[in-house]
Design a binder for these strands. Sequence first.
DNA 1: CTTGGCACTCGGGAACACAGAGTGCTAGAC
DNA 2: GTCTAGCACTCTGTGTTCCCGAGTGCCAAG
Lengths: 337, 337
Amino acid sequence: MLDDRKLAVLRAIVEDYVSTNEPVGSKALAERHNLKVSPATVRNDMAALEEEGYITQPHTSAGRVPTDKGYRLFVDRLSQVKPLSGAERRAIETFLAGAVDLDDVVTRTVRLLAQLTRQVAVVQYPTLTRSTVRHVELVPLNDRRVMLVLITNTGRVEQRVVELPEVVEDTRIAHLRAVLNACLDGCGLSNVPELVADLPERLPVEDRPAVATILSVLLETLVERHDEKIVFAGAANLAGADFTVGLRDVLEALEEQVVLMRLLGETSSDTPSALTVRIGSENPYLRGTSVVATGYGSGDNQLARLGVLGPTRMDYPVTMGAVRAVARYVSQILAAS
Amino acid sequence: MLDDRKLAVLRAIVEDYVSTNEPVGSKALAERHNLKVSPATVRNDMAALEEEGYITQPHTSAGRVPTDKGYRLFVDRLSQVKPLSGAERRAIETFLAGAVDLDDVVTRTVRLLAQLTRQVAVVQYPTLTRSTVRHVELVPLNDRRVMLVLITNTGRVEQRVVELPEVVEDTRIAHLRAVLNACLDGCGLSNVPELVADLPERLPVEDRPAVATILSVLLETLVERHDEKIVFAGAANLAGADFTVGLRDVLEALEEQVVLMRLLGETSSDTPSALTVRIGSENPYLRGTSVVATGYGSGDNQLARLGVLGPTRMDYPVTMGAVRAVARYVSQILAAS
DNA sequence: CTTGGCACTCGGGAACACAGAGTGCTAGAC
DNA sequence: GTCTAGCACTCTGTGTTCCCGAGTGCCAAG
């Protein structure tokens, strides 16, 4: 149905349209790319491609524009992920290496990705569920309140103020801290609930109300926060772009964590580090936009996802290259720290 | 020069223009507001107002539009800050009361303000410099690394990983922690540098390299982070608005912490809780936009600033009311926690 | 199967006219 | 002196028309 030349024509259409943002016609095509055939032949191929739904014309007698299906074929079979230049790689490396803490890593990553792709970048904070406990700290604030601080191996810190049901002396707090750490240090966050389940019973009766309160706050922290935090950058790059959906809708979606999460999608369990590309209407949450995303994290433990969002008309090879590269570098950084 | 009626005309022009977004003419003015004079009289007044530079006409024979100077006069003398409705007050209160930690307070505040004003809201994180140390924690990660956690009375937590120059035993870390807390607990952050200056000398010689390293990281944290963090929300509200400056420029400015800081401006030392209104060209950093901002924090210790950014053509009384109300509520919340 | 030729279509820009809103000015009324 | 009514004038924005050109689809010949 689609011989090699037709595919070459499709590729050329996508490339030209992406770079010029104008419907591309048969004549220009035959000239700019050295297909060794005449415009008339190209026209025939284009008619076939349109028949199959890969391209469309905005109006009768205008050039052709790729459809979502056309981009899909292009991404799947006609393009190769474009690796970054050496200079870009070095820039990434030095920029990310300067980060001082987890917040900083994420902030730098999202800005970097936005700048590299000239699109909107989205980065999810490393998921707590796969992290492990590095330390639990209880800091007495006064005799009825303590601050609970949870530090994970990814450098993330969660803190909550706990109102105690009764006055508890500092020495007992200290003891409790020791017990908690002995119990939880190095354990996966997802195991925490079962690990602390019988903890009150192993402590003196008089401590139990306080312990129960603290544990409930601890568990709540784990559940509520486990992967909801997500940031974006590069909204300014939307200013030029034209979406089928309104600019307002895109900006609103960006500020809704829930929508953003859905956009990034789930890491497929079998190949977590594969690039996910969702094009236009394939994307149920925000139609008219494309998303290129991937998981990051070192090897076996995937931490979270990152990616970019842009108009359907984007340079997929370059974008995919940038996303993949940034994901690798940030994985390295996080594994090292 | 400007009698009462002329001022009333100016007020009417501002109000009409803000609500309709169209140049307002003499006829419509005389009808809609019950100035008891004819359009011709209004025209004379308008000519006078234009002469003085308070209004201008986009083209010959179009209605008049307020100038920055006109808005300024309106804000200073012709309008009253509009208090929020009871329903709005209750909504604010319940929405902010649900916050679980400082991050959450700030996030909720900025979203709330954006929604209330239908503009872009900007909130600066509570400044560290005026906070006091509530606790310093040193958590051994392994024998060459400790995590330094600094907790302030505003609930803010800063953490850094410190690479030690030599192996230090946990017991010595614990001792150091006790010394640090004894030295710093309850002190203002700005006093920390002098307080720790002679600390190494008061400790055993063998601890000094480690102490020096930890202290340098601590000081660095204070300096670098003291008030740079700032967030915004409501970018979607920019979609409809039209600025004299490009939308792209505004979005870029929003992602630059430094520019954002400048926009919010400084809290004037004498009346910290006063509303600051900077209109159009009065604003040197992003011309064509107006900023309504104020400091927040309870009474004597002002913590930081918050405000909104919007087009010059904004409803100043309502915006000012919302900013003031939100600032008060968030001050309350922070004072209580 | 490819190619050159040709008639056809449609969008977008230029030229133009026109209605309507709004102004400034002047002369008269209170 | 201040306000009002009337009037001529000046714009902008909109609708219309017209035309050019890019691009197509089809057909017949190589």
